[in-house]
């Protein structure tokens, strides 16, 4: 009696559970299709920014804490060492201090120089990297500037050594950057030595670019520097992208493939620069004006023998 009742309720519970699962699966599928079509996720994320951004900052805290602790620890070590040295040899310590002062003055001078150079160059915006992990197989960065600071999708991110990537998603005060090494990223490049143009794609291995479509006849050697070609209008021309580390013919023999190491310090940069000036969009040319004989010459037109259109 009990057994049958239990069995019966278990069975119906199972049925209800399965039905519910099917409903949720369908719901999820609908959401995914809608998102795939209409890119809802970015919009939802933007409107949920009040909740999402603190979570990003919170998740970045341990890394920040580690950094602070490392700095504190390093300073302490240095102080202890200085102290010991002072006790052992006051003179030497003084000499070191003088030397340090000189270096610091030099540092200040160099910094000023750098600043002026930056002012002369392109308009840039400094941004800090929030160290969080967005998925294992995507090469993304999160920066601490966003729509409120005037960041737009498509802005190019560089560091002192070269191009890092581009902004793909903007929240009110953070933004996401797709790195050049992301498997779904491609950037038009030029070989600085020969001027050959090709595309550099990201790859699954961190810190590696793929150049799968180099003509067999092209002259590409290990050590060639790749710079952005500016084609396509997204990236400005002339910025270092990478260095060729490996060249081999493709299995099919139709192309050469090369591997390159990105020029930018993708995994070490704490601060990056956002290029302010977006390159002009290089879309298709505007439609041509209507050409041909003037309408007035149409057989049976209103005015015969009118002057041709200017």
């Amino acid at each position: 009696m009990t057994l049958t009742r239990d069995g019966g309720s278990l069975f119906s519970a199972n049925m209800a559970g399965t039905l519910r699962l099917i409903v949720y699966l369908a719901l999820a599928s609908v959401l995914m299709v809608l998102d795939h079509r209409g890119h809802w996720l970015a919009k939802v994320r933007y409107s949920a920014a009040v909740v999402v951004e603190p979570i990003y900052r919170l998740a970045g805290l341990p890394a920040e804490g580690m950094r602070v602790a490392r700095v504190a620890f390093a300073n302490r070590k240095q102080l202890t060492e200085d102290n010991r040295q002072l006790r052992v040899d006051l003179l030497l310590a003084n000499a070191r201090l003088n030397h340090m002062a000189a270096v610091s003055r030099q540092n200040k001078r160099l910094k000023k120089l750098l600043d002026t150079r930056r002012k002369l160059g392109m308009k840039v915006q400094l941004a800090r990297v929030i160290d969080i992990d967005l998925g294992a197989f995507r090469n993304r960065l999160t920066l601490d500037v966003g729509a409120r600071q005037g960041v737009k999708v498509g802005q190019v991110v560089i560091d002192a050594h070269g191009i890092m990537g581009q902004v793909i998603e903007v929240l009110p005060s953070t933004c996401m950057v797709m790195l050049v090494t992301d498997p779904t990223h491609a950037i038009p490049v030029t070989d600085a030595r020969t001027g050959m143009r090709t595309m550099a794609y990201g790859s699954h291995q961190p810190g590696r670019l793929r150049l799968p479509t180099i003509p067999v006849s092209a002259d590409v050697r290990v050590g060639d520097r790749l710079i952005s070609s500016g084609l396509g209008g997204r990236f400005p021309p002339g910025f270092p992208v990478g260095t060729v580390t490996h060249v081999e013919p493709q299995v099919s023999g139709m192309f050469l493939t090369a591997r390159a190491r990105p020029a930018a310090d993708l995994d070490r940069s704490g601060e990056v620069l956002l290029l302010r000036d977006l390159a002009p969009p290089a879309g298709p040319p505007s439609p041509v004006r209507k050409v041909g004989p003037p309408v007035s010459l149409k057989p049976g037109g209103a005015r015969a023998g009118a002057e041709p259109r200017p």
Binding site: G17, Y24, L25, M32, L41, Y56, R138
Partner: peptide
């Protein structure tokens, strides 16, 4: 998904499946 997902509904579906199997 809203925090860290490539599609809205992806992790929702996966977690629903996990929960269903565990409940079963």
């Amino acid at each position: 998904d809203v925090i860290d997902g490539f599609l809205l509904g992806d992790q929702a579906l996966r977690l629903a499946v996990v929960a269903f199997l565990v409940i079963r």
